[in-house]
């Protein structure tokens, strides 16, 4: 396997990535290290895990992080209701032997596996792709826990013992940088900042993701969005927004951009009222004109 092969592999899943991103992916696969992707929302961080999993024919296991995420929701939990019923049933049958019950109640039958534990289990097509999404949304205790889990790829369940992954999963962590993730966690990973793509690459991405759009429209859309990103906005539109917007415009049978169409569909690219209010009317026309001008020499 080589960097070029990784790039081609992802392109096969309609994921157009830069040489730099392909390089870190290659390294993550080759060295078996977790990959830490940071960048603005909508730059394709989550998408790369999905593309990688499909391309390699591996299972994708996703752990969506949120504030207050704990081990019960991330690793495993005992099915207490079922265990209680088992106890009552045993009592009713008259055989409530203590030691026997312990060995019977805490077995895999009563174990509810959550994403991290699932990722340690052997899978049909090989080690799974474990996507730990938006890790910046958890809190520090969970980060510390992840640190432990990701360095050894093993989970200890007191009643069952240690479960070790036969083959370490391919781990991808993403962060929107709403807060700084601790250095100790980052240090164990390969880091990459996912930037907005350049003009040509964004056209490639758009053509891969919304092939129905004509070339002229694609070029106009991308030029407009690229121009929009240089404006002073609270939230700049990501690639995901570009694709969404293109799909919206296609659904409306738009052949070419006009200030009116832009005003009507702004909700697909800008998600904050202050940003939308700014772009209404003359601003949209100005940016469109500038975008058109940038297209001309080409």
């Amino acid at each position: 396997m080589s960097i070029t092969a990784v790039q081609a592999l992802l392109a096969g899943e309609r994921y157009v990535c830069s040489r730099a991103l392909a390089t870190v992916n290659f390294l993550a696969l080759k060295l078996g290290r977790p990959l830490f992707l940071e960048g603005e929302a909508g730059t394709g961080k989550t998408e790369i895990a999905k593309a990688l999993a499909t391309a390699l024919g591996r299972r994708l296991i996703r752990l969506q992080c949120y504030e207050g995420l704990d081990a019960a929701a991330a690793v495993y939990e005992w099915n207490f209701a079922a265990q209680m019923i088992a106890i009552r049933a045993a009592e009713a049958a008259g055989g409530a032997d203590r030691d026997l019950m312990k060995s019977e109640l805490f077995t895999e039958e009563y174990l509810i596996e959550r994403p991290l534990l699932q990722a340690m289990r052997p899978q049909a097509g090989g080690a799974p792709v474990l996507l730990i999404d938006e890790v910046d949304r958890t809190d520090e205790p969970f980060e510390a826990f992840l640190l432990e889990a990701l360095s050894d790829f093993q989970v200890t369940i007191p009643e069952l013992g240690t479960i070790r992954a036969p083959e370490p999963p391919i781990v991808i962590l993403t962060s929107n940088r709403t807060r700084e993730v601790h250095d100790a966690l980052k240090r164990r990973c390969l880091y990459h900042w996912v930037d907005y793509p350049g003009f040509e690459r964004e056209i490639e991405i758009l053509q891969a993701r919304a092939p129905e759009a004509s070339e002229t429209l694609s070029r106009e859309i991308v030029a407009f969005v690229q121009r929009l990103r240089t404006e002073d906005l609270f939230k700049k539109p990501g690639v995901a927004e570009t694709i969404d917007w293109a799909k919206c415009l296609l659904a409306l049978d738009v052949l070419t951009l006009s200030p009116e169409v832009i005003s009507d569909t702004l909700g697909a690219i800008l998600k904050y009222q202050d940003d939308i209010a700014r772009l209404q009317g003359m601003e949209a026309k100005r940016i469109l004109d500038e975008a058109r001008k940038s297209l001309e020499p080409a």
Partner: peptide
């Protein structure tokens, strides 16, 4: 990482080291 990636292209060398040494934007 450098050993794993080899020297197929010179700019790759940049990104290999980048992946290992850079931690923040």
């Amino acid at each position: 990482a450098v050993a794993a990636a080899g020297f197929t292209e010179k700019s790759d060398f940049y990104w290999v080291l980048h992946a290992c040494f850079v931690n923040r934007p």
